[in-house]
Amino acid sequence: MNSIDLRGFNNFYHDSEEACFVVYQILNKMIPFIKTHSKEIISNQYKHCHTISNDKHGLIIKINQLINNFDLDPQIGLWEIAVSNSGGVRVIFGLYSNDDNYYFYPLFIDAHHQIYSDSKFRTDYSKVCKIRFKDMKNSSY
Results as ranks from 00 to 15, higher is better:
Met1Ala: 11
Asp5Pro: 03
Asp5Cys: 10
Leu6Ile: 14
Gly8Trp: 04
Asn10Arg: 03
Asn11Glu: 04
Tyr13Cys: 03
His14Ser: 04
Asp15Phe: 13
Glu17Lys: 14
Glu17Gln: 13
Phe21Met: 08
Val22Met: 03
Val23Trp: 00
Gln25Arg: 06
Asn28Ile: 03
Lys29Gln: 10
Phe33Tyr: 09
Ile34Val: 14
His37Gly: 04
Lys39Cys: 07
Glu40Ala: 13
Ile41Thr: 05
Lys47Asp: 13
Lys47Pro: 05
His50Val: 07
Ile52Asp: 02
Asn54Arg: 15
Asn54Leu: 15
Asp55Ile: 08
His57Leu: 14
His57Ala: 11
Gly58Glu: 14
Leu59Asn: 05
Leu59Met: 15
Ile61Trp: 10
Asn69Phe: 07
Pro74Trp: 05
Ile76Asn: 10
Ile76Pro: 06
Leu78Arg: 10
Leu78Asn: 07
Leu78Met: 10
Leu78Ile: 13
Ile81Leu: 15
Ala82Val: 03
Ala82Lys: 04
Ser84Ile: 12
Asn85Glu: 15
Asn85His: 14
Ser86Val: 09
Ser86Gln: 07
Gly87Lys: 05
Gly94Val: 04
Leu95Val: 09
Tyr96Thr: 13
Tyr96His: 12
Ser97Phe: 12
Asn98Met: 11
Asp99Tyr: 11
Asn101Arg: 15
Tyr103Asp: 13
Phe104Lys: 00
Tyr105Asn: 12
Pro106Gln: 08
Leu107Asp: 00
Phe108Ala: 01
His112Arg: 04
His113Asp: 00
His113Pro: 00
His113Thr: 03
His113Lys: 04
Asp118Cys: 13
Asp118Ala: 07
Asp118Leu: 06
Lys120Thr: 09
Thr123Asp: 11
Ser126Lys: 06
Ser126Met: 06
Lys127Leu: 14
Lys127Phe: 10
Val128Ile: 15
Ile131Pro: 00
Phe133Met: 14
Met136Glu: 11
Lys137Pro: 03
